[in-house]
């Protein structure tokens, strides 16, 4: 589904470290598109403290302000009237969603399934505690322009090799995929409360239902105070430019 039309040129991209996948793609291919993206990226703790001002949003903490300044190319404050659309990226952690779904699956696998109603409440609780809810609430205090929200990417298939991660076997994939689909439906419903759209996780990079092929994660860059540095484990939960291109396509950039 294409949320953004070519006539809407100025788009504000607000989010945590997960903005980097789209930013990396955008930095390489902006000339090919008629849209103008401005990235306001900061660490989750700083974004949670974001403050709505008259016609603006700004981070309370100086680290957040500086991060906005670096990622946007000079602006510490988001002047909402400068933009026609808002895109919130990464404020709903894909890897934490998979963690929750894995716990739900584990209970079912050991013969102690949760009821559908309880699972629905777990999904609601996940959203209610998320950065996504905070940003949507703050945005809606200062603008009624269209908002689309995309969660952080689902984790890399390689995360299953970590000792601390439960292995989801092939027999459990269909069940887990259904859980994810139900989660996405629930998020679509919750975002309607903010007159916002939820962008489902792209299916193209998917493997085993809940994970992304590592080629969409390898070489991801960190948002470290706005600078870009590489960390070995970063790739397990952050997308790279190839993933960014998928996002751009889904968002119709």
């Amino acid at each position: 589904m294409r949320f953004l039309r070519k006539k809407q040129k100025k788009i504000c991209v607000l989010g945590n470290s997960h903005v980097t996948s789209l930013k990396r793609y955008w930095d390489e291919s902006a000339d090919q598109h008629p849209w103008d993206l401005t990235f306001f990226g900061a660490g989750t703790p700083f974004l949670r403290g974001i403050v709505p001002q008259k016609g603006a949003l700004e981070c309370k903490r100086i680290e957040g302000k500086r991060s906005f300044e670096r990622t946007s190319g000079g602006q510490q404050v988001i002047q909402v009237n400068d933009y026609a659309h808002f895109c919130v990226l990464g404020a709903l952690s894909g890897s934490k969603v998979v963690g929750l779904l894995s716990e739900i699956d584990a209970a079912a696998e050991r013969g102690m399934p949760y009821s559908s109603e309880f699972i629905g409440h777990l999904y609601d609780q996940f959203f209610d505690k998320s950065l996504a809810k905070v940003l949507l609430e703050k945005l809606r205090k200062v603008t009624d322009k269209p908002i689309v929200l995309s969660g952080g990417p689902l984790p890399s298939e390689r995360i299953q090799k970590q000792k601390y991660v439960r292995k989801i076997t092939p027999e459990r994939q269909d069940f887990c995929l259904k859980l994810l689909q139900d989660f996405e439906i629930r998020m679509e419903n919750r975002l309607e409360e903010y007159d916002a759209k939820f962008l489902r996780w792209p299916s193209a990079p998917r493997v085993s239902g809940l994970f992304n092929q590592h080629q969409y994660m390898a070489g991801s860059m960190a948002l470290n105070g706005g600078t870009q540095e590489k960390y070995p484990q970063h790739d397990l939960i952050h997308g790279n430019a190839a993933y960014g291109e998928l996002l751009a396509t889904a968002l119709s950039f």
Partner: peptide, 9 residues
């Protein structure tokens, strides 16, 4: 329940 479930839930 899952580990991070709120006590009230």
């Amino acid at each position: 329940a899952p580990a991070k479930t709120d006590p009230e839930l």
